Simulated scan of single mutants.
Amino acid sequence: MNEHLDSNSDEHLDKMYNTLTHHTNLLSTTRKQLEEQAEHLAQVDTKVNAMEKLYGSQLVWKIENYSEKLEEAKSGKKSTIYSPPFLTSRHGYKLALSACLYGDGKVRGKCLSIFVCICKGDFDALLDWPFRHKIKFTMIDQNPDESKRRNISHIVEPNICKENMSFLGRPKLERNSSFGAQKFVELELLPTRYYTKDNCLFIKVDVDSKHMILL
């Protein structure tokens, strides 16, 4: 009888061991799947953030290390800086900004100049040419009190004529000539408010999509 009890106990222990081993393996597999899902979600989140930046109808350009870049512009070492390219819509025009922090041409030393250029894009064959959409540049006041912000804006409306096709026509090279606001913001205004803060400034661009082909 004792031998029978011992045999039953051994079988019971074996079953418990097998059950525990099975559940341990299941937990390990589940943990691995959860880790893979978490990694996948992180990748998706990164892609979504990138797409939001790339496919928005406007760009907010953060210019970091402003004082250093201003000194480079003053010295002539690097008079123009460039933004990342962006699309006016998911399958729209590809644009890029450029800024002369110490001014361009006759306003050098007086104004910050801002320009936009049309770049060669993947969907140009499907878009309307020449480019005819109004563009609004905005220097953002970074005052912590939003009610006290005094943004500075300038609207550029493309002038469709033969002479301006190098600016507004479908790009034949990587990018067209730039156009924009040479007298965008007077340099003496920048220190008067919160246009520069933590050695950064922000320039926003809005492209009017009212009559734009949206694919």
Rank of each mutant, 00 (worst) to 15 (best):
S75P: 00
S67A: 13
P84L: 07
G76L: 05
P84N: 14
Y93D: 00
S67F: 09
L95R: 01
P84C: 10
K77P: 02
S79Q: 09
G109N: 07
G105C: 13
G109A: 08
K110T: 12
T88P: 11
Y93N: 05
S67Y: 06
L101V: 03
A99S: 13
H91S: 01
C100V: 08
Y93W: 02
E68H: 15
L97K: 06
E71Y: 00
T80R: 12
H91W: 00
K106Y: 09
G109K: 04
G105T: 11
E72L: 12
F86Q: 08
S75D: 09
R90A: 01
G105L: 13
T80K: 13
V107C: 07
G109E: 07
I81L: 09
K110Q: 13
P84A: 09
K110A: 12
G105S: 14
H91M: 08
K74I: 13
S98M: 12
S75C: 02
A99H: 06
K74L: 07
R108T: 15
E71R: 14
G109M: 04
E71H: 10
T88W: 10
E71G: 08
K94F: 06
G92K: 08
A73Y: 12
E72S: 07
K106Q: 14
S89A: 10
S89V: 04
E72C: 06
K74W: 05
T80E: 12
S75T: 13
S67G: 09
K94S: 14
K110G: 04
A96Q: 15
T80F: 11
R108M: 10
K69W: 00
S75V: 01
S79E: 13
A96C: 15
R108P: 06
A73S: 15
S98I: 01
T80S: 02
T80G: 00
R108S: 12
A99M: 02
Y66H: 07
G76Y: 01
K106C: 09
S79R: 05
S79V: 04
H91Y: 14
Y93K: 02
E72Y: 02
K106M: 09
Y66W: 09
E68F: 12
S89T: 13
E71I: 07
L70S: 04
S98G: 12
A96F: 08
D104R: 06
S67P: 00
G105R: 02
I81E: 11
T88I: 11
C100F: 15
K106P: 01
S67V: 04
R90E: 11
L87T: 00
G109C: 01
H91L: 09
T80L: 06
V107Q: 02
K94N: 12
C100K: 14
L70V: 11
Y82F: 14
Y93E: 00
K74Y: 03
S89G: 02
I81D: 03
Y82D: 05
K106I: 10
K74M: 07
P85T: 12
K106W: 04
S83W: 11
F86A: 06
P84D: 15
L87M: 10
S98W: 01
C100M: 13
G103R: 10
G76Q: 03
D104A: 05
K78C: 12
S75K: 10
K78E: 10
K94P: 05
E71F: 06
G105N: 09
F86H: 04
C100P: 01
